[in-house]
Amino acid sequence: MMALKVNGRDHQVDADPDTPLLYVLRDDLALNAAKFGCGLGQCGACTVIVDNKAVLSCVTPLLLVEGKQVTTLEGLGTVAAPAPIQRAFMEEQAAQCGYCIAGMMMRAQALLMRNPKPSDAQIRAELEPHLCRCGTHMRILRAVHRAARLMDTADASDRSVR
């Protein structure tokens, strides 16, 4: 059994220490947002936040995150009460198939927590590890800019992950 804190809740997970965090999130905790894209750390679809930093969950074994704070897209907000980053992606309609989007959003969230007013070049550089095949990139960039503005006006508590 491994102890894991995900989206503010403590879990005891019956998984081997070498299990990638991605499988624990999806399989043991029934969370959807982190996606299997390559399992190799090449595409970014599995990105979650661990202790305020964006992490590729498909290549992060459980033992490295034991006791750390893991946040997934589910932990940011809901359809009824979306976090600024979620509102921004909805308002910009920043998805086609959407499979890559959760990972993009988590890295963008980590960036905005570190740097509330990133330049366009900084956003692009930050998102370089992420692939989108539908070509939704223009909207993703707009959505991250919008999220920065929304966070700026929102309650400061929205900027932290729960």
Partner: peptide, 16 residues
Amino acid sequence: AVAGERSPIMPGFAAS
């Protein structure tokens, strides 16, 4: 990754 080119990719572990 080297943009647009075949190139090895290794994930960094700094964040984890």
